[in-house]
Design a protein around this nucleic acid. Structure first.
Lengths: 273, 273
DNA sequence: CAAAAAATGAGGAATATGCCACACAATTGA
DNA sequence: TCAATTGTGTGGCATATTCCTCATTTTTTG
């Protein structure tokens, strides 16, 4: 943000000069400001950027469309954390993910032991659990999830060992798998890159191996996947439908996928956004 | 948020009934809502909680005092990420810590295996290592350290398993210790709450146990402590000076501490800020 | 170069918010 | 029990924000 702000200052338009920032530049400025400050006032932005409040309001509306900011009454707030570069992925399908997260969170009862796989959707679930659930134990290999859950002191969070993935923020590897296999859990909740008639797949073989281990290890395996993942194919199929007890999604599957689910006896839960 | 609203609705006070929520309950509600939604409108809160807008505004003011929320024009947003509140501690003694971190980073050679304990000072060391070192393996139980190191792709970061500490951002417990004991490392680098003639101590017994395990397990144990820790006493002594090979600090120790160090044969390295 | 499209600004009405002072109810403490 | 403290609601008023329309400027396009 610092590198952007001065640039913006240099170009700051005295109206007479007419060298005001382009729309794109304003948008960038807003985003970068938001990484520094949790919230912004539209009126301040208008003053700093030297444009009318109406223009800023239009900017904010557009940025909100793209889920790049959160609109507040007089301004904007950052959409999520600043965390790794998951921000992009986490910003899409918010409504769907929140709906699915709500459904899953309602399934969880006190004193359960959960395994939670890494992922944008499972992160939503973790946040939801942190505000809803109590007296549960969660085993995870994703640190953002661990941190999200830990805000609730009645949730015991156990982290897996393993090699730290630099961009994804989770651990993986043989140690992780071995650790997962040493637990008994009531439920495993995992996501996927895509789901097809063959089962759930993931673009990362290491992550997939972990999700698969969780699913096998828990008494009940829940897969969460929005409709954008229907019929997507990725590197490895980490679980077949016979290994998955429930699929939580946001739209009724159709075609070969639906057939495979029915044949495997996987229960389908459709969350309404 | 949808499933929460009804709960609130159940209790929603028609004024006549007088069964409105207590202030504490409102505050909890606000916080919990904020974990689900990024921002809240004061007016909506007033409606849902069945109190006047003025009361909500007072609530928000108090919560802001406690840094539990961020105020926005018409409501509130969540304060920061989920991050621990390490920021404060990390902000002091910057110069000293940087100097000590630099000294330690220079000790590390390629292909070494390090153990790095949690802490503000070790975090500085991790950052320094990330920019200086290459082709090393680091074992740590602190996630901020893992993330800091991981920006350098030539550093292999291994994380320990264990129970996640909600405010400190590291894992602890028997699993953590067992995991540490399964490794062989060239060096362990740990910090402490205080150091005295008896040895290094820590205010957190769990953290201390981990530091102690690391120090014992590694071929060389390095303790890093600024002069503010001299002669401080805390809960548990996790390592005696005979277990520590080197003390990296920013000022020459004196008195009983110096005597103990000399008798134990601990090498003292003074970093100049 | 001219027309079309997009972006911006200005003004005004309607609505929201913030702030302040004061009254009243609920709780606490002596 | 009474007084003090705390919590809450109300009303007024200044200020902010939003939404809308329309004129103007800038950019794009043929």
């Amino acid at each position: 943000m610092t590198s952007d702000a001065p640039a913006a200052a240099d170009k700051r338009p005295r109206k007479a000069d007419g060298d005001r920032l382009s729309k794109l530049a304003r948008h960038k400025h807003i985003i970068s400001q938001l990484t520094a400050a949790p919230t912004l006032r539209a009126s301040e932005l208008a003053a700093v950027l030297g444009v009318s409040g109406e223009t800023i309001r239009r900017d904010l509306m557009e940025l909100q469309e793209q889920k790049l900011i959160n609109r507040t009454y007089g301004g904007a707030s950052r959409p999520f954390a600043l965390e790794p570069a998951l921000t992009d992925r986490k910003a899409i399908m918010i409504a769907e993910r929140e709906a699915m997260a709500a459904v899953i969170a309602d399934l969880i009862l006190p004193n359960e032991v959960l395994m939670l796989g890494a992922g944008a959707t499972t992160f939503h679930i973790a946040r939801r659990l942190a505000s809803r659930a109590h007296d549960i134990t969660v085993i995870t290999h994703d640190y953002a999830i661990a941190a999200a859950l830990a805000v609730n002191p009645s949730i015991r969070v156990l982290c897996c060992p393993g090699r730290y993935h630099p961009t994804e923020g989770y651990v993986f590897g043989t140690q992780t798998i071995a650790n997962i296999n040493s637990y008994e859990a009531n439920r495993a909740i995992v996501s996927a890159t895509g789901i097809s008639a063959r089962g759930a797949n993931d673009a990362d073989d290491e992550a997939g191996a972990i999700y698969g281990a969780m699913a096998k290890r828990a008494a009940e395996a829940i897969l969460v996947a929005d409709h954008g993942k229907f019929d997507q194919r990725a590197l490895t199929v980490f679980a077949h439908w016979t290994d998955i007890d429930r699929l939580v999604t946001d739209r009724q599957p159709e075609g070969a996928l639906a057939t495979a689910l029915r044949e495997a006896g996987t229960e389908i839960i459709v969350a309404q956004p």
